[in-house]
């Protein structure tokens, strides 16, 4: 059985917590009295299991690699930003920029996420149990953003090759984002992702969105002129 280490943030600093997590190669860690502190469990680089017992501030689980981070509360801006691999799960709601620029791994928000969820995402899978705010999936390059609830205005603005799946209503699509066919292969893949995320929904009930690819090239007739 893996030994669990407790960190009480009324007795330890965030710097001490992160330094200990960076030094560990394996193990289970529970963080008490999180108090909405910023930068909790960020920069992890090993297959650790970390549970934050309470709310977290900005950048919880930021740049995660390999580790599994669970937040038993709400999170502030930029949770799991630039995640490379592993899993970050938020049991409450998330503020802006959930999973921003994430390259890989899985981010699950069981509640709702605010504006710009999945902004500039580069391969991460993000699954949101509730709604997402405006400009979600802005400039999303790769990966999947899945929304079980509704999406705010300008969804997928300037999107590249990421895929967005929404079960509820979309206020409006952003520039160059369009509805795409939902083929059986997409339903199967989405079903697998929902199971991985531990969220129950019929994958066939989602609508798929992606890039119309009309912004991929400028008109550069002037490129050769001095």
């Amino acid at each position: 059985m893996t030994q669990n280490t407790e960190f009480d943030l009324t007795k330890h600093t965030v710097r001490e917590l992160n330094a200990a997590l960076h030094a560990a190669e394996e193990g289970s860690f529970t963080v008490l009295n999180t108090g909405g502190a910023h930068a909790l469990a960020c920069g992890l680089n090993a297959p650790l299991e970390v549970t934050l017992k309470g709310h977290a501030g900005y950048y919880a689980g930021g740049m995660n690699k390999e580790a599994s981070v669970v937040v038993e509360g709400n999170v502030g801006t930029g949770c799991a930003e630039n995640i490379m691999s592993g899993v970050v799960r938020v049991m409450g709601d998330a503020s802006q920029s959930l999973g921003a620029s994430g390259h890989g791994g899985l981010v699950v928000c069981e509640g709702s996420a605010s504006a710009r969820a999945g902004i500039s995402m580069k391969g991460v899978d993000i699954v949101v149990g509730g709604d997402v705010g405006h400009m979600s999936g802005f400039m999303a390059q790769a990966g999947r953003l899945v929304v079980l609830g509704d999406a705010g205005a300008d969804l997928g603005d300037s999107i590249y090759e990421a895929e967005i799946f929404v079960r509820g209503d979309v206020v409006s699509l952003g520039a160059d984002c369009e509805q795409k066919p939902m083929d059986p292969a997409h339903v199967d893949a989405l079903g697998a992702l929902l199971r991985q995320a531990g969220l129950d929904a019929d994958p066939a009930s989602f609508t798929r969105y992606g890039s119309a690819r009309t912004l991929y090239n400028f008109h550069i007739d002037n490129a050769g002129e001095g």
Partner: peptide, 23 residues
């Protein structure tokens, strides 16, 4: 930037980068 706006956020972002790189 995708995950911060303004100097108050930047202070928190810098703190995150310091935490990731152990100061």
């Amino acid at each position: 930037h995708p995950d911060w706006t303004g100097p108050d956020d930047l202070e928190i972002k810098i703190n995150e980068l310091r935490e990731i790189t152990d100061w």
